[in-house]
Design a protein around this nucleic acid. Structure first.
Lengths: 328, 328
DNA sequence: TTGAAAGCGCTAACAC
DNA sequence: GTGTTAGCGCTTTCAA
């Protein structure tokens, strides 16, 4: 075990109260000499206060929880880093919890984090509707990032991007390039603001009939992209594909190449996210950038400002940006 | 705040001791009726015990710390996932700490994690020599993964891969394909077991003279790969490049393509790691797989078995595997 | 079969 | 300026 405050106090021949005050900067009324003595002993013994005891006592742990589907998905590490960077700067730690998009694990994460007395929570993607209302009663400061959830009226903050509009723009981009048979591959979702809506609206506005046999919806994974493109290409001729995210695009590109088709010659393709690796695809992927790192920062900032200073939660919309590379 | 054990006890009209026993399964001597009563009240109120109070009391938090350079580097999320998966299965939580390879941050991470009373620590890559000895005195169970550190004689566990041999194999592979002007791009390191050694030995064995003007060493990043390949290609003609990791290879491939050279026609290239994305590069990257996920699992297993059952730490060498794709 | 009480390491009134 | 004390929520003897 490390050294305790009591031991420091004994060594310095003062009370723990004095040591505590010095450590926490409430030392206006402490004499310079005792302060120095205590500080030097702290230094000498590399003492650092036990934060779990402190947390128990003050009911604040200066840590926040981050609940995400899977850190292995390249979109999330960037958010995580954004969160961590501002959290650390503001004196907070962050603990992660992977849900794999499973309802029970999401529940378990929240219970777990709560039992760890985190001061606040950030959710990404996960957070099921059903769970959501049940969850609200726990009234722990919360912000959701990149998640379609109706936070109106609740005390829940939200950082998001209009991904629906992004997909609309992506689809329009293909249409503008002359594509008319545009497939759509994405994750399955019943959300009101699902990306699918952006795709449909763009087609509709351009007078292109929706053809459900060239839409494929499953997961936000490369496997989905591969399987989707393979399935569609087997039966149909398309000249463009809009993908729900870059992972899907990567998989789809592989299927297209395997089919002997060229990008963008035969098929133009566009993704969403601008994950780090999309620039290394071949050809480099045209995509819509979601500023993941910034979203993480914004979420952490909002959450911690609420925890620390009671600043209100709000909805913060971040801008996406078209990244033109070579697949369109 | 959530409900406390005391409140549960009051509701059930028993003592907290009784509730505690029931929760922790030490309930051989508890009557069925009180057990049921307590359990139903716990259920009804969704009570879950405060782990920070418990941790303080029993001096075990059932959490381990994972210290890594940067979660944003695609090699690490896989390790993290491996750690988390076994940790969770064994009833442990894991908290992450990014160091950015900076010495002070590494120090800070350890202090931080220790103040959180983690029961054990896993390091990746980081852990400087200088810090290492100083650190040892803290005697908290530790295992290092994928890290060249001499753990002999210490109580520190180690899971690793002979990356030097891997790079040797990679170099030999290129030589076997007829390459004679083989560049090397990797991170700078002074470690005894640095990958550079594998490259040199392979050249030597094949009677190829080492040409330092075609080795470039900086970081394990795509930028290094790009800059290195660019610099080398400007002055030299090479027919093969061995890269310290896949990120470097991705960057190098971009530079090669930009130069108008073909892969593997003009230049063969091989990486190390087999990160998820290397299969989506074009052409798909030939690389040496480091089983990151398995390394994470092995490390967590060793650590937790030590914490829980006092099982000894040891050195565990995992096998790498050549992944033949299309860049060689 | 159950409960009283002490204490983990720390903070915060409040007293001196 | 500094110390005393109570208590955060839990576990664990030990006694009843």
């Amino acid at each position: 075990m490390s050294i305790t405050m009591k031991q420091i106090a004994d060594l310095a021949q003062v009370s723990t109260a004095t040591v505590s005050k010095i450590i926490n900067g409430r030392d206006e009324h402490i004499s310079q000499s005792t302060r120095e003595k205590v500080l030097s002993i702290i230094e000498e013994h590399h003492f650092s206060p036990n934060t779990v005891a402190k947390g128990l006592r003050v009911k604040k742990t200066s840590t926040i929880g981050f609940v995400l589907p899977d850190i292995t998905n390249p979109f999330f590490p960037e958010i995580a880093r954004g969160i961590e960077d501002v959290a650390n700067k503001m004196g907070f730690a962050v603990v992660f919890c992977n849900t794999d998009n499973e309802a029970e694990r999401e529940q378990a994460c929240v219970s777990f984090l709560q039992s760890k007395m985190v001061d606040g929570l950030i959710f990404t993607r996960s957070l099921r509707k059903s769970f959501f209302e049940n969850y609200l009663s726990r009234n722990i400061p919360t912000v959701v990032v990149d998640r379609d959830v109706d936070t109106a009226g609740s005390a829940i903050g939200k950082v998001y991007i209009d991904t629906r509009a992004a997909v609309y723009d992506a689809t329009k981009l293909l249409i503008g390039k002359g594509c008319r048979q545009i497939a759509f591959i994405s994750a399955m979702s019943t959300s009101q603001t699902d990306r699918y809506g952006g795709y449909r609206r763009a087609l509709e506005e351009s007078g292109i009939a929706l053809d459900e046999s060239i839409v494929y919806r499953e997961h936000y994974s490369a496997e989905t992209g591969f399987r989707g493109a393979e399935a569609i290409l087997k039966e149909h001729k398309v000249d463009g594909i809009v993908c729900g995210n870059d992972l899907i695009a990567a998989g789809a590109m592989q299927a297209i190449r395997q089919k002997g088709l060229s990008i963008p010659g035969d098929i133009r393709i566009v993704g969403v996210d601008n994950i780090y690796f999309s620039r290394f695809l071949y050809p480099p992927l045209t995509t819509i950038e979601q500023p993941a790192y910034e979203m993480g920062m914004a979420a952490a900032r909002m959450l911690i400002n609420n925890i620390l200073y009671g600043e209100p939660m709000f909805e913060q919309k971040l801008d996406y940006k078209l990244i033109l590379r070579e697949t369109v």
